[in-house]
Write a protein that binds this DNA or RNA. Sequence first.
RNA 1: GGUACCAUAGCUCAGUUGGUAGAGCAACGGACUGAAAAUCCGUGUGUCCCUGGUUCAAUUCCAGGUGGUACCA
Length: 308
Amino acid sequence: MNEKQKYLVVLAGPTAVGKTDISIELAKHFKTGIISADSRQFYKELKIGAAPPEQEQLETVKHYFVGFKSISEYYNVSRFEQDVLQLLPGIFEKNNIAILTGGSGLYIDAVCHGIDDMPDHDPELRQQLTERMNSEGIESLRLELKKLDPESYNNVDLKNKNRVFRALEMCLLTGKPYSQFLLKSKKERPFNIIRIALNMDRALLHDRINRRVDLMMEKGLENEARELYKFRSCNALKTVGYKELFEYFDGIHTRDVAIELIKRNTRRYARRQISWFNRNNDYTWFTPGQVSEITGFIQNEISKEKNE
RNA sequence: GGUACCAUAGCUCAGUUGGUAGAGCAACGGACUGAAAAUCCGUGUGUCCCUGGUUCAAUUCCAGGUGGUACCA
């Protein structure tokens, strides 16, 4: 079997653009399954807020990595990369094509070209550092990073506390500079990758986002959030749709304001996604109405490869 | 129909003693290798309602018009 005749079709795009529907049409057309690259649809508790595919859709086409984790479980990009790479050979035994769809650009890229090897964080150390950040401020962490890893100090965004935190955390955990792990190597994959991204007129996208939020509220997002309130410190719940409702429960703002904030933050999230996919020139862009153009494009890419 | 007030950014509004304008929110652009639906950086986007008049110069003053709001008929 020539492995290079296998194809991973990546379907990216901003939230609410219609990736789920298109991915199902593509999966039916190519008689294959769908791998979700959506860092919130992984969690089974986020039934409404993460807008996972409907039950009926899940029954129509085989989906992987939807609702397969609990919010209290730790998961990260690197594990996702490994999980997908382990899964793919099985799919490729029966199909030439697999579909990877979702809005988490970092996760998609990890599957497509890998992510450098680093150890997982140590929960105790993270706790200590978090406390230190809260009491001493970020400047203290910056200065220590400067000592332990001048290269990272010069390269990371020092205003971004997550980045400073992460770099220092790795230095302390491994005893080696964080920058030594950052090889930015592009790993070769034993399959071809066809990247497709969806987008639409911005005003239309905003309209879809706003309506989807209203629909989520009708479906009972508020109740879902109330039940998850006690897990709010979980990373999986640091998410648009939940954090705003938690603030409403805390009395920080009204229900109506919370809904407006969910809409606004979702719009901003969509913009960041577009930004991420835009900087990668490997994507070919379509609108969600162009299903036949997309299937034609995929077919064409495949025959191009075969003739080489 | 009459009187008063208002008309400036997508919205709510400030302001210019006459020298073409700025806040909040919204929006837009970007970065980003284990928290990524997170986190962070950057950007005013404008026929100052229209037409005349006064003036070196009008978004600002004057007149008329149009639209809105309130009150009186």
